[in-house]
Simulated scan of single mutants.
Amino acid sequence: MSPGQIAALVAAGAFVLLVILLAIPLIKLGRTLDEATIAIRKAHQNSDPLFTGANTTISHVNTQLERVDGITANARAVTGNVSALTSLFTATLGGPLVKAAALSYGVGKAIRARRGAGQSPKKHSRRGRR
Rank of each mutant, 00 (worst) to 15 (best):
4 G>Y: 11
6 I>V: 07
6 I>C: 02
6 I>F: 05
6 I>H: 06
7 A>I: 04
7 A>D: 05
8 A>C: 02
8 A>I: 04
9 L>T: 04
9 L>H: 06
10 V>N: 10
12 A>W: 08
12 A>P: 01
13 G>I: 07
14 A>D: 11
14 A>L: 13
15 F>H: 10
15 F>T: 08
16 V>F: 14
17 L>C: 11
19 V>W: 01
19 V>H: 02
23 A>C: 02
23 A>M: 01
24 I>G: 03
26 L>K: 04
28 K>S: 07
29 L>S: 10
30 G>L: 05
31 R>S: 02
31 R>L: 03
31 R>K: 06
31 R>F: 13
32 T>C: 05
32 T>K: 08
33 L>M: 13
34 D>Y: 13
34 D>H: 11
35 E>V: 08
36 A>V: 09
36 A>I: 07
46 N>A: 15
46 N>F: 12
47 S>T: 08
48 D>V: 14
48 D>C: 06
49 P>A: 04
49 P>S: 04
49 P>K: 03
50 L>I: 13
52 T>S: 13
55 N>F: 11
56 T>C: 03
57 T>A: 15
58 I>L: 11
58 I>Q: 04
59 S>Q: 10
61 V>P: 00
61 V>L: 14
62 N>C: 01
65 L>D: 04
68 V>M: 10
68 V>W: 10
70 G>P: 02
71 I>H: 04
74 N>M: 14
74 N>V: 09
75 A>K: 03
77 A>G: 09
78 V>T: 13
78 V>E: 05
79 T>E: 08
81 N>C: 03
81 N>T: 12
82 V>E: 02
82 V>Y: 01
83 S>N: 08
83 S>Y: 01
85 L>V: 05
85 L>D: 09
87 S>M: 11
89 F>Y: 02
90 T>M: 03
91 A>S: 03
92 T>Y: 04
93 L>Y: 07
93 L>Q: 09
94 G>D: 01
94 G>K: 00
95 G>A: 11
96 P>A: 00
97 L>Q: 05
97 L>V: 06
97 L>R: 03
98 V>H: 03
98 V>E: 07
98 V>W: 02
100 A>D: 00
101 A>M: 07
101 A>P: 00
101 A>N: 12
102 A>K: 09
103 L>P: 00
104 S>N: 13
104 S>E: 13
104 S>C: 15
106 G>L: 15
107 V>D: 05
108 G>L: 03
108 G>N: 08
110 A>G: 02
110 A>R: 00
111 I>G: 01
111 I>A: 15
114 R>S: 15
115 R>L: 12
116 G>K: 12
116 G>I: 05
117 A>P: 01
118 G>E: 14
121 P>A: 12
122 K>Q: 12
123 K>S: 11
123 K>D: 08
125 S>Q: 14
127 R>D: 12
129 R>F: 15
129 R>T: 07
130 R>S: 13
